[in-house]
Simulated scan of single mutants.
Amino acid sequence: MGEQEIVDFLNHLATKRNVSASTQNQALSALLFLHQQFLDRKLGRLDATLRASKPARVPVVLTRAEVRALLAHVRPPYRLMAELLYGSGLRLLECLRLRVKDIDFGYSRIVVRSGKGEKDRVTMLPGRLRQALKEHLAHAKAVHERDVQSGFGSVHLPDALQRKYPNAHRAWMWQYVFPAAKRSIDPISSRVQRHHVSEKLL
């Protein structure tokens, strides 16, 4: 089977058999593997191959009533997290990794650090969540202050920041918005810290 026969076969799959793009790609990969590994023959260009099209999928969007019904079954503080995911367009880890300083009540915005592609971005802070978020932060700050009084109150910082600001790991502004219920030992620094809520709990 030469290049033209392979092209004809792949085109047959796409036009006559109406296979999916993944099935056609799997067939191509199998043929390439056969020729290169067993027949010791390198195939030429297969530019004439007609690619099977991927079907366009319409995204599933919940209605407002469905969203309210869903959120009604989420208990605090996870409900506030879910509302931020929905209202601010945050990804799960972006929400969990928020620091206090990333919440800008003055401009009603949230700064996302090192998001997808390690890029920073700014998203909106929904007005209806402002008060709930302020109350949540007041509770989180009280927990942090108790930690500090007990000789703890530390949080993980990126290495560069830790070197530049050696005392910042205890500052309130660097604490996680959604701190874990219990302190834990950082495996890198061996320091007792309070990490953010685990994504496994959501």
Rank of each mutant, 00 (worst) to 15 (best):
V143F: 09
A65C: 10
R170P: 04
V60K: 12
G106V: 00
S190I: 10
L90E: 05
Q175F: 06
P59H: 02
A140N: 04
Y107V: 07
I185R: 13
W174H: 13
L96G: 00
G89L: 05
A132E: 10
L157T: 02
S189L: 04
P126E: 08
R75I: 07
D102S: 10
R109A: 06
P59R: 07
A181C: 04
D104W: 06
H196I: 02
R183P: 05
R79H: 02
L85G: 06
R163T: 13
R64P: 07
E118M: 04
R170W: 11
D102M: 03
K141R: 15
K54C: 11
R113T: 08
H156I: 09
K141D: 09
S154W: 07
D104R: 12
K182H: 13
D186K: 09
G117F: 01
S154V: 02
I110P: 03
V177R: 05
V100Y: 02
L62W: 11
R191C: 11
F152D: 06
A140M: 02
R121S: 04
A65N: 14
R130I: 13
R99V: 10
I188K: 15
R194W: 03
A69C: 07
P77K: 00
R97K: 10
S154A: 15
V148P: 05
F178R: 04
M81L: 11
V111A: 08
N167C: 10
E94Q: 07
R113V: 11
A142N: 07
L62G: 01
M81E: 03
G151M: 00
Y107C: 09
V100L: 01
A171F: 13
L90I: 02
H196F: 08
R79G: 07
R121Y: 02
E118F: 06
H169Y: 12
Y78K: 12
S88K: 05
R99E: 11
R128V: 11
P76N: 07
K119S: 05
K141Y: 10
S154L: 12
A168T: 04
H196M: 01
L96M: 01
F105H: 02
V148T: 10
R97S: 14
R97I: 00
V112F: 06
E83R: 09
L137V: 01
N167D: 15
V74N: 05
Y165Q: 12
S108N: 11
V192D: 12
K134V: 06
D104E: 03
G89H: 03
D159Q: 14
E83P: 03
R121V: 00
S190L: 14
Y78I: 07
H136I: 00
R121K: 06
S108E: 11
A180R: 01
M124D: 02
W172L: 12
V111W: 08
A132S: 13
R163V: 12
V112N: 00
H136D: 06
R170Q: 14
P187L: 09
K119W: 06
D159G: 09
F152A: 13
K134Q: 15
L71M: 10
T123C: 05
L62P: 00
V148A: 07
C95I: 04
A142I: 09
K141S: 08
A180V: 08
A171E: 15
